[in-house]
Design a binder for these strands. Sequence first.
DNA 1: TTGAAACGGAACGTACCCGTATCGGATCTA
DNA 2: TAGATCCGATACGGGTACGTTCCGTTTCAA
Lengths: 203, 203
Amino acid sequence: MPEAAVSHESRAPGRPRSLEADRSILSAALDLFIEDGYQGMSIEHVAAQAGVGKATIYRRWPSKEALITDAVCSFSEELTAPDTGAVRDDMLGLVRQIVELASSSPSGRCFARMAGEMISNPELAKVYKEKVIGHRRAIVRQIIVRGMDRGELRDDLDVGLVVDMLVGPLLYRALIKRAAPSETAGMASAFIDTLLVGIAAQS
Amino acid sequence: MPEAAVSHESRAPGRPRSLEADRSILSAALDLFIEDGYQGMSIEHVAAQAGVGKATIYRRWPSKEALITDAVCSFSEELTAPDTGAVRDDMLGLVRQIVELASSSPSGRCFARMAGEMISNPELAKVYKEKVIGHRRAIVRQIIVRGMDRGELRDDLDVGLVVDMLVGPLLYRALIKRAAPSETAGMASAFIDTLLVGIAAQS
DNA sequence: TTGAAACGGAACGTACCCGTATCGGATCTA
DNA sequence: TAGATCCGATACGGGTACGTTCCGTTTCAA
């Protein structure tokens, strides 16, 4: 994160840093990281695409690695847990969100790029898993746990395993397919119903 | 692929190309591609690790891109479809193979690296999907179809969807976890049984 | 034995990139 | 207004990489 340019008590003298520059740099860095990878992107391209000078970037981040680390974690809270009262509807809503994210938003493409970059950059991998993946898994988890609490799902489930079974196929499709989101969305019902048979409580 | 140095009828004059060099170049290229990515790897490093001169590489492949394309497709037939006569045992054997591949062999790490590189290199993505992913999906498909033919599985299944549900969670775990294969292997039974409930024929 | 082509090694030209430094101008506080 | 800091633009030094070219040497067929 760019260091706060001022303390809350008394502002530093001189021209304050442009918040607009903060945003455009992070956005450009994320785009280029996704498109070209860690080694493939360059600070010069980031500066050009963000419409700022290179010094403006190095005034905020000490190195390329620090910038990318921040950019990768800059996703706003894009995923929200539906709470309809029925686990099937919750899952359906969640799956639709994931399908949408995986194709249209940068976050899906970022996951694909990170899958590779995590091999050679453990520090980046650690932060990404904690900040982005951990946060998303917690949301998916919520839906499963609520279903168990309501008695809709078996109470002996391994929640982590169910999360994997719910999220894994969607991300796998997003990684290897050039499929339109509508195509994957059409399979959502069949997918969830098949999975539900295995995890629902005995009726 | 390195062009055949000779026709079958009459060999070209001069020293023939070293098959050993072919192998060591492809192996080094694959290793470094997985570890450092497309832009991160260098032909110089490939040559050094393979123990050959740079000219020896450029005598066989016209460019870095052509070399990587060949290297990525150089996996031998690592996955084989078990045929035990029971779909559950077939799936169990397959899952164990996938878990093993995803962690120990280069092919699992290559999939992770390719997930990112496919974003910016459509040509490489096309070849990889056809040659590697297509081949593996066909093997998984075989097991599903055999189970349907034997009446063990419902006959109205979307085979592609079942393949995604079987493979997706395993690859997802391999991508984001630093988990030992044994850990994932321990979940194989629970995973398959949960999935089977949803796809098995009514008893 | 001779010629042809491959071999490993090294150098080259061109291009790019990281991180730093410097410039004149713009924008803030006091 | 005065001083401080930020701004975009530009240049620099050191390093790396692609793809080519040239070496002297090695390995093959005729």
